[in-house]
């Protein structure tokens, strides 16, 4: 009887370890496949060339530039709004129906499929506001997409600050905002930063919403430079420029038959996975550093 139970336990351990091995194995297989197919294509020429009908001459330069600019817009819009909303919900909001409503919508937005954000952007930004399928539209769309992540992580980071820090500030006559900006925010900055990095790493790989707003899949030019030689030396024309991003470039290459384009897709995939992993690693590092430093 006891032996049978021991066998059952051993069998279960074997079963669950193989289940976990499936997860790890998939990850290994995924990286392996990308490496085998794409590593050979990932050279300087690939990084600095425009797309081409010939797979071996095609490159990813416009997509890299597009991704960078879109992320810039997303970060500039999504992070301040998300952090501000998190501060409001954690430090200011009273228990009212409005707060309830805000919290329900944040939870709900976190669960909305990303392609629905694309439809929102198509109806609102592209046509109603007339922004067209531009870098600005894509940046705003992804900003909305990462909003729930930024809000939730900001709230968690702020909640970890003990109440007595605030009480000490109030006792010295600080106002609410002085308390928040001089104490709560600096102390929770590392936690917020972790969430922001994770949110951006999600945004950089998003494909569906950007396809939906009508981003092009074949772009043979770069957006106008943000710095000009004439005064006022900065230009925001690039905001309205057509664009493509790395995940869309990869999607376009995957959809084309032929092994050469598959190699390009794998190389783009390597870049994408590399970027998300670097960002995730950075987030884990920040979290680790923060845990070590905290001593209330």
């Amino acid at each position: 009887m006891i032996r049978r139970r021991k066998i059952a336990e051993a069998l279960f351990k074997l079963l669950s370890l193989s289940a976990l091995a499936l997860a790890i194995g998939t990850l290994v297989l995924l990286f392996g496949a990308l490496m085998v197919d794409g590593l050979g294509r990932l050279d300087w020429q690939f990084l600095t060339s425009f797309p081409s009908r010939r797979a071996s001459q095609a490159g990813i330069l416009p997509a890299m530039v597009g991704s960078t600019l879109v992320m810039l817009v997303t970060a500039c819009v999504g992070i301040p709004i998300g952090v501000a909303a998190g501060i409001y919900l954690e430090e200011y909001a009273r228990r009212t129906w409005l707060t309830e409503l805000i919290e329900v919508t944040v939870t709900n937005l976190a669960g909305v499929p990303s392609i629905i954000f694309g439809l929102l952007a198509l109806g609102l930004f592209v046509y109603t506001l007339g922004l067209g399928p531009s870098i600005l539209t894509a940046g705003l769309t992804l900003a909305l997409l990462i909003l729930p992540v930024v809000i939730v992580t900001t709230r968690e980071a702020i909640r970890a600050i003990p109440v007595h820090i605030r009480e000490a500030a109030f006792a010295l006559g600080a106002t609410k905002w002085q308390t928040v900006s001089d104490h709560v925010l600096p102390y929770s900055a590392a936690g917020i930063l972790t969430g922001v990095i994770l949110a951006l790493s999600r945004a950089i790989g998003e494909t569906a919403p950007i396809v939906t707003i009508g981003a092009l899949t074949f772009i043979a030019f770069l957006p106008p430079a943000p710095v000009t030689s004439q005064p006022p030396y900065v230009s925001f024309e690039w905001l309205m420029s057509p664009f493509t991003v790395v995940p869309i470039q990869m999607f376009a290459w995957v959809s084309r038959p032929g092994e050469d384009f598959a190699a390009n897709a794998a190389a783009a995939g390597l870049l994408l996975v590399g970027m998300t992993l670097v960002m995730n690693g950075l987030a884990i590092y920040v979290r680790y550093r923060m845990r070590k430093r905290v001593s209330w």
Binding site: A23, T26, L27, L29, L30, A33, L34, L198, S201, R202, I204, G205, E206, T207, A208, P247, I248, M250, F251, V254, A265, A266, G269, L272, V273, T276, L277, N280
Partner: peptide, 13 residues
């Protein structure tokens, strides 16, 4: 990491 891989890469996979 498995959760962070972009979906388009999963499509390729």
């Amino acid at each position: 990491m498995l959760g962070a891989v972009p979906t388009v890469v999963y499509g390729y996979f």
